[in-house]
Design a protein around this nucleic acid. Sequence first.
DNA 1: AATGAATGAGTCTTCATTCAT
DNA 2: TATGAATGAAGACTCATTCAT
Lengths: 227, 227, 227, 227
Amino acid sequence: MPQLKMVKSSRSNHKVDCRRGRPCDEHRRERRCEEILDKATEVFAEHGYRNTDVQYIADPLGIGKATIYRYFPTKERLFLAAVERGVRRLDEAIELAVGRVDDPIAKMTVAIRAYLEFFETHPDLVELFIQERAEFRDRPKAIYFEHSCDNKDQWRQSLLAAMTKGRLRKMPAERIMAVTSDLLYGTMFTNHFAGRDKPFEEQARDIQDVLFRGIFSDSERRRIKQS
Amino acid sequence: MPQLKMVKSSRSNHKVDCRRGRPCDEHRRERRCEEILDKATEVFAEHGYRNTDVQYIADPLGIGKATIYRYFPTKERLFLAAVERGVRRLDEAIELAVGRVDDPIAKMTVAIRAYLEFFETHPDLVELFIQERAEFRDRPKAIYFEHSCDNKDQWRQSLLAAMTKGRLRKMPAERIMAVTSDLLYGTMFTNHFAGRDKPFEEQARDIQDVLFRGIFSDSERRRIKQS
Amino acid sequence: MPQLKMVKSSRSNHKVDCRRGRPCDEHRRERRCEEILDKATEVFAEHGYRNTDVQYIADPLGIGKATIYRYFPTKERLFLAAVERGVRRLDEAIELAVGRVDDPIAKMTVAIRAYLEFFETHPDLVELFIQERAEFRDRPKAIYFEHSCDNKDQWRQSLLAAMTKGRLRKMPAERIMAVTSDLLYGTMFTNHFAGRDKPFEEQARDIQDVLFRGIFSDSERRRIKQS
Amino acid sequence: MPQLKMVKSSRSNHKVDCRRGRPCDEHRRERRCEEILDKATEVFAEHGYRNTDVQYIADPLGIGKATIYRYFPTKERLFLAAVERGVRRLDEAIELAVGRVDDPIAKMTVAIRAYLEFFETHPDLVELFIQERAEFRDRPKAIYFEHSCDNKDQWRQSLLAAMTKGRLRKMPAERIMAVTSDLLYGTMFTNHFAGRDKPFEEQARDIQDVLFRGIFSDSERRRIKQS
DNA sequence: AATGAATGAGTCTTCATTCAT
DNA sequence: TATGAATGAAGACTCATTCAT
């Protein structure tokens, strides 16, 4: 059993570096954490925070309930860790999509798609975000909203640039950002809870159509301008 | 105890009067129901569904916990009744505002304002809607979404008419309705949970500006058309 | 069953005085409290505080565990209430015995007997006092010691009077009180934990003999005086 | 890592040296045991038996929890070992003090002082003795009391001799022994738990004064004799 | 009808002890 | 040998709901 031998020898190396006893495998720990968070996300999303017995998470992992408490000090912290990871992943997904896109309008297009795609792919996270608000009412802000502020500045820059270049109407960048993010947020929730199943590409197009061009006809638009 | 006696005698009098039409006990019952729902809405919104002990509702009303169970068979039904009443009130508020407004665009304007105003006035209901989703995951659709369908038809009619008259761009009415309602929904939630406090009139104006006219500049809009 | 009838009629009187609903029978409540404390004293003494599941108290009473929590908010408070009641009873027992005894020496004699008799009759309380110290290490002073201070003043008076009258040697009253109470305390504990079973009357006599007359012989006593 | 290597080599050296006589591993083991018992005494005294997680003992020693289980099979045995060692040390302290003192009265004087001094120096042990009684209610006798019997015989001899020599009143030696040990026991506990802080020398003098000479005045003493 | 009292079922969390390295 | 990791078993406390008056 060569593999075993290798493990053994690497272990005896450890014995020199570390104290004695079982080596503290940082890797192993992290993997476990991730496994637990994966299952926790799933189960919390399925049953809701309050209706989830930590046992429900332990059982399908084939581990003891107490083991989970070795990694997360309370059920609450476990839950919040799952939410946090979700928010981080959302950020990453959008960051990744937006990536090197420089054109501000293309950037928005891509971000909208990425946002909707993310939640279509991770419906559990929608549930988790709801649960967070429902249970942790004392926290000043939902984790989701805390994070959403992070990239505000770069978006503002991008929008202002587009206005200067005459590609967007002149208006407060804040207004665009607020309306857009509210629209996306509402869409994500409604998709999930009203059971809509329009493919995200189509939905993104609809949103862009309205958001970019508005719903007024040209004539109505002209009339408004005059008044 | 004269008061008690009066109540008793007045009740028996009523019983005579009310033989025809709705009996007075029914009235009394309904008033109680409303009182309970008022307090329930408040307390559920404050503590969340799961963290609300039915006792917390009974105490400030000065009644016994068991009394509540005489009016609502379970805690769940009590909660759902509160949500239902909230949704009904939202409908009524919008109905009332839209009222005799015939012009389709004015109608939308008024509805958007009314929607935002309603939730600014009734922040408890935002919480209740969240709670409903968080707890009653098995129900096919949230009560909130069930109701929002009711008036879809009339809105569709109104929008199509506006397109025919050339006031709105030609596009599927569904698209406008979906985007608008998602946007409003998202705005309401974000207002509440991100702690925004912009006055609803301003917010309504921002939304209308973007929704009606879009964010593109005229040149960008032209460019898109050509492609 | 006349008693029952009386209760009933008094209850219907209550209905007039109180609100509606089940009358709040203060008596009943107190009786329940006492029953629970009785059983709690017994069970805590038998198993120790930590090894006592509140269920163990509820079961033999034929009531639900939760019922106990209606009367005492936590296991800790239940336990401390039992201890407190024990201390109060000790005080009362000694008070009762000392009663109208005026002669200071007779008073001590009686108190010593009463003390030992009390703990022979209530061995559970010895256990309870131990348990209190063992578990509630952060409390500044054991309940037992808190109370023992109450009557210190009257004892001091009594002892000083006896010295003035030439019946006791001149020495600080504190010294007598400290030595006596330590001796009794130690005797009670040792009786219980070392499993001694000397009848309390004999033990009291032994204690008095030593405490009053000392162990020195007359000659030794004289020799000491000279030096 | 030179240090680690040194340890290793020094150990193998030992192994060579120790072939004859008690093997060095035995030494090592014993040293470890003592270290553990030291810390255990401290921690058990601080938190109480039940509230002490074995981890709390391992951590400050910088060893693993499981290591402790290599030296003591259960938490209970670890605790009892600590108690036992404490009792043994008490015995030794008194033995050492009494030492070559032959005069029976001087012997008592010295023993009383030594007893009080011991517990002033080792307050942890008072806690441990309490804990033992609180937790191990099924054991027939507390370890403390088991041991206290050991030297009974020599004390009895000493007291009887003193009576014969006319230095102590004639009375059952048992009575003196019981009263004295109860008094000391009670004093030790009360000191600790009532938070008294009189220096032990003074306290010893107080005790001797009462124990030896009694509290009666000469006249009272005479009156008693006549009756 | 109204309600104080009672409680069973449920959950989080702890920790002594064992296991695997 | 030493020890980090794992966990089963246990117990305090809660609360929706029912019962008895």
